[in-house]
Design a protein around this nucleic acid. Structure first.
Lengths: 214, 214
DNA sequence: TGTACATCAGTGAACGCGCGTTCACTGATGTAC
DNA sequence: TGTACATCAGTGAACGCGCGTTCACTGATGTAC
C-alpha cells in the first residue's frame, strides 16, 4: 500500500486543508480526528504517519488557513488593479459581508479561530502571531500616513492594527448573533463597513496615484 | 439529604457562576460536567436536578456572565462619579489592560466567548444578542453626538457599535498572541487604547457637564 | 537493467479515558392531616 | 402543635459513545546490489 512520495505529500496537504476548513467551522475542540480523516478521505489510523499529535496538526492548519485563506488581502489587491477601485475598500466590503459571515469554513482564519487561540499553547499562538504580522504588513503597505483630520497622527502600523481590530471584532460579533438576531448582525456589519469606507485610513496608494493621473 | 429551597437555589447559582468562569477560561467545549460540578463542590450526578442539559447551563452561564461580569460598563461609570474622570475612558483603559487580557475567567463574557457563540445554537446566541444590546445601550447613553470632525455624522448607536467592535477585536487579538508574542499583544492593546482615548466618541456626558461647570 | 529487500503510508482493530446522561438510592425538608 | 409521608437535591455507580493515540499488518515504492 505504499504510495509515491508525491502522493504522500499530496495526502498530507489534503489533511491539512480539510482540517483548516473543519477547525474554522467547528473550533479546535469541535472536530475529532476520526471525522477529520474521514472528511479527507482516509481511515483515521494513518493520522500519525503525518503528524505527531492533534495539536501539531492544529498548528499546521492554522498556518495554512492564515496564509491561504480566500480572504487574504492580497487577493483583493489583485482585483483592484483591474477595476481601479481601492483594493483595501473592496477588501473591507468583502470581509464584512454576510457571505463571509456565513462561511466560516472558507473565511478568515483569524476571525474564525482567534478566540480559540487564546486557550491554545505557544506553538499555535506563534502561527497566529505570524499570520497577524503578515496581514498588518500588507495593510500597512497600502495605508498612507493621512495628512488631514484624525488620521494624521497615526502611523501606517497603527492604522493597520486599528483596522484589523475593527474588522475582526465586527465579524466575530456579527457571527455571535447571526442565528438569533439577524437584524443586529447585519447592523454591526453595515455600521463597521460604512465607518471604514469613509475613514482616511482606507485610502490605498493606487487610488491616490490614479486620482493624480486622472 | 434534601436541602431547603434556599440552599438549593444557592447551589444552582453557584453552579452557574462556576460554569461562567470555567467556560470563559476554557470555552464551552473545553469543560466537562464532571470537572465543572467538582469545581462547584458537588458530585456530577446531581447536575440534572438543576439543568436539562449542558447546553441549557451554557445558556444560563452566558447570560450570567454577560450581566454580572466585573467589566460591565456600569461598574466603571460608578467609579467615574467619584473620580470625575470620564467613566467611558476609564472603562476603555480597564477593558484593554493586560490584567483583563490575562484573566479571561473573570473578564468580559462577550470577548471570551463570542467566537464560540458563532458555533452554538439559537438559545445561546439569543443570550449573546441580549447582552450585546444591553452593552450598546449603556455605551449609547454615555456617548454624545459629536459636533466636530468625523464623529458628527454618527449616531450614538453607531458609535457604540464601533466602540464595542474595536474593544472586542483588540482584546481577542491580544489574547490570541499573548503567550507567543507578548510585544505584539501589548502593542495591540496600547494602540487601541490610545485611539479610543482621543476619539470624540469617548467623551462622556458627565465629563462635558463638568467642563462647563469648571 | 533486473532482483531482493527495507521502507513507510496506508488499513482496521483496539487501548484507556473522559464525555454527557441516566438511574437507584438517601434522608432531611416541607406538607397534609 | 405533633405525626406521617411525599418531595427532591443530593450521592455514587453505571451507561454507551467518541475521543486521541497505539499497534500489528499490508503491499507497492524506492533503494541497494
Amino acid at each position: 500500500m505504499k504510495l509515491t512520495r508525491e502522493q504522500a505529500a499530496d495526502n498530507r496537504r489534503r489533511i491539512i486543508e480539510t482540517a483548516s476548513r473543519l477547525f474554522r467551522e467547528h473550533g479546535f475542540d469541535g472536530v475529532g480526528l476520526a471525522d477529520l480523516m474521514k472528511a479527507a478521505g482516509f481511515t483515521h489510523g494513518g493520522f500519525y504517519n503525518h503528524f505527531a499529535s492533534k495539536e501539531a496538526l492544529a498548528a499546521e492548519a492554522a498556518s495554512s488557513g492564515l496564509n491561504f485563506s480566500g480572504l487574504k488581502l492580497s487577493d483583493a489587491l489583485l482585483d483592484e488593479r483591474k477595476t481601479g477601485r481601492s483594493g483595501l475598500t473592496r477588501f473591507v466590503e468583502r470581509y464584512l459581508s454576510s457571505d463571509h459571515r456565513d462561511s466560516r469554513e472558507s473565511g478568515c482564519t483569524i476571525a474564525a479561530l482567534a478566540g480559540d487561540a487564546a486557550r491554545e499553547g505557544k506553538e499555535i499562538q506563534k502561527r497566529f502571531a505570524q499570520g497577524i504580522e503578515e496581514e498588518l504588513d500588507i495593510f500597512a503597505s497600502y495605508l498612507t500616513k493621512g495628512s488631514k483630520g484624525e488620521a494624521s497622527s497615526l502611523s501606517a502600523r497603527e492604522h493597520s492594527i486599528l483596522l484589523l481590530a475593527e474588522l475582526v471584532g465586527a465579524i466575530i460579533l456579527a457571527r455571535a448573533v447571526a442565528q438569533a438576531k439577524p437584524s443586529l448582525s447585519a447592523e454591526i456589519l453595515r455600521t463597521s463597513r460604512r465607518d471604514l469606507a469613509k475613514k482616511p485610513s482606507a485610502v490605498s496608494r493606487t487610488s491616490r496615484v490614479r486620482r493624480k493621473r486622472g
